[in-house]
Simulated scan of single mutants.
Amino acid sequence: MTRAANPTGKAAVSSLLFVCGMNAIRSPIAEAIARSILPASVYIASAGVRSGQRDPFVDIVLAERGLSLGDYRPQRFEDLEDGYFDLIVTMAPEAHHAALDATGTASVDIEFWPMPDPSAADGSRDQILDAYRDVCDRIEAHIRERLLKKDG
């Protein structure tokens, strides 16, 4: 089965996985934003290379956008129930290496979208939240540019 190409020249995606270090910040943000933008027919998941804990700042910046993770809990890449995806987007070098190693010769596209880790931000609560907001903005821009079909 051939996937239709989108305006970027890359195949349209029907199943998408976002992977970061601990599935606590970048990949769950990407999952929530992608779910709000992409058609409901696209299967979207996220995972981490290592076990992580849910980050409360993620809930705050997603709520500002009218989004929620619900009862989401971080999961590891190796614990995913469904292992087939059209596209795996990695957001940290360790995640990229893990995805390449795990997929081997499988027919899957893997793209590296380097994203800063906002948990490394210093300063006031507002400055830290701004770092999280910046990551949300970057992720949303990548999703829109790479995965949305343009009209006309």
Rank of each mutant, 00 (worst) to 15 (best):
N6D: 15
P7Q: 15
P7E: 14
T8W: 13
K10R: 15
A11Q: 15
S14T: 15
S15Y: 11
F18A: 00
V19Y: 10
C20V: 08
G21A: 14
G21R: 12
M22S: 14
N23H: 13
N23C: 06
N23I: 06
I25Q: 11
I25K: 01
I25D: 01
R26V: 04
R26N: 08
S27E: 08
P28R: 12
I29L: 14
I29W: 03
E31M: 07
A32K: 02
A32S: 14
A34E: 00
A34T: 09
R35T: 00
R35D: 00
R35Q: 07
S36D: 09
I37D: 02
I37S: 00
L38Y: 02
L38Q: 02
L38D: 01
L38W: 03
S41R: 10
S41C: 05
S41P: 06
V42N: 05
Y43R: 14
Y43G: 00
A45F: 00
S46N: 13
S46A: 08
A47N: 09
A47K: 00
G48E: 03
V49E: 01
V49P: 01
R50K: 07
R50V: 11
S51K: 09
S51A: 07
Q53K: 14
Q53P: 08
R54K: 11
D55K: 12
P56H: 06
P56Q: 11
F57R: 13
F57K: 11
V58H: 12
V58Q: 05
V58Y: 13
V58S: 12
D59T: 06
D59A: 03
E64T: 12
E64R: 11
R65M: 13
G66C: 02
G66D: 09
G66V: 09
S68G: 07
L69H: 13
G70Q: 07
Y72R: 05
R73K: 11
R73L: 10
Q75W: 03
Q75V: 14
R76M: 10
R76P: 00
R76I: 06
F77T: 03
F77A: 02
F77G: 00
E78W: 05
D79G: 02
D79C: 06
E81V: 02
D82V: 03
D82L: 00
D86M: 06
I88H: 06
T90R: 05
T90K: 10
M91F: 04
M91H: 05
M91C: 05
M91L: 09
P93G: 07
E94R: 08
A95F: 04
H96N: 14
H96G: 04
A99S: 13
A99N: 07
A99R: 09
A102T: 06
A102E: 04
T103G: 02
G104H: 03
D109W: 05
I110D: 08
W113F: 12
W113N: 03
P114N: 13
D117N: 12
D117M: 06
P118E: 13
S119C: 15
A120M: 15
A120N: 14
A120T: 10
A120E: 15
